[in-house]
Nucleic acid binder design. Structure first.
Lengths: 137, 137
DNA sequence: TGTACTGTAAGACTAAGTGTTACAGAATGA
DNA sequence: TCATTCTGTAACACTTAGTCTTACAGTACA
């Protein structure tokens, strides 16, 4: 699984705990343990899809743009990792019954699998994540 | 997604169409479009788990060892790709509430996701795959 | 005009996946 | 017994995707 997905969740969760002020990519990247540029790339994607807003310049940064309970993990999955389940099959032999039809069969199964995964991920909103973060182990 | 999974399915399907005789790794690799050694590595795993039997030497090869309808995709997933859904999070900052708890939260969510995926994959037996292969597009 | 940010491109580095060669061991048949 | 045809596996080269890092332009603010 793409780590963009988890970085996106991490970032949004971070912002969810700072709803009243802007957070810089440096602060988030420090929390997530990755390079600021990488975080900015992920944040840029989140912004493009309207989950967050950003402001350049001194005192700028990123801030949540939606309601916590209206953003779920499936939304985030779709923009960061859609198709990640799909296995990359090498081009198999068209002259063989198996080779010629396997890809078609697998693609349809994995599309179903992703859809199925979606149903599961939809149940987790960012609000749930925030609650889980606060709940002690 | 790991392509070992699809190669395993491909191999088993191939064998499922040749239930009465042995198939060589060369034949299967040609159908799947990958190197024989790679196929043998996957087949070796399938053998270790009792899905197939093999025989060395001239006239040898691989042959199915189970009933077609008692092997499902979840069985195969488990031995080839278990944990593939689990995203690799970099070690995040323990000093931050988010960083310190994110990994735990994500791991539990993804474990649930994999379990959920399992329920879906369990519905596909090798017999189903063989039927799908034969069904024209 | 200097400082503190975002936004992005480009290249270096790293790890995982895959292909390839090589060779030992087992079964078979001449 | 010996050549042949297969599995089984290790080792290494190659390729690709992922990630880190540097660099710098653009924007806001004081």
């Amino acid at each position: 699984m793409n780590s963009d997905f988890t970085l996106a969740i991490h970032s949004l969760t971070y912002l969810a705990l700072q709803l009243d002020r802007m957070s810089t990519s440096d602060a988030i990247s420090e929390s997530a343990g990755v390079h600021p540029v990488r975080i900015r790339k992920v944040l840029s994607l989140l912004k493009k899809h309207g989950f967050i807003k950003s402001k350049e310049g001194s005192g700028g940064g990123f801030i949540f743009a939606r309601d916590l309970s209206e953003v779920n993990l499936w939304d985030i999955y779709k923009i960061t990792s859609e198709g990640a389940l799909q296995p990359k099959c090498p081009d198999s032999n068209e002259a063989c019954v198996v080779g010629a039809n396997m890809q078609r069969v697998l693609v349809s199964i994995f599309l179903g699998a992703e859809e199925h995964l979606g149903e599961y991920l939809k149940h987790y909103t960012l609000k749930d994540i925030v609650d889980l973060i606060h709940k002690e182990k």
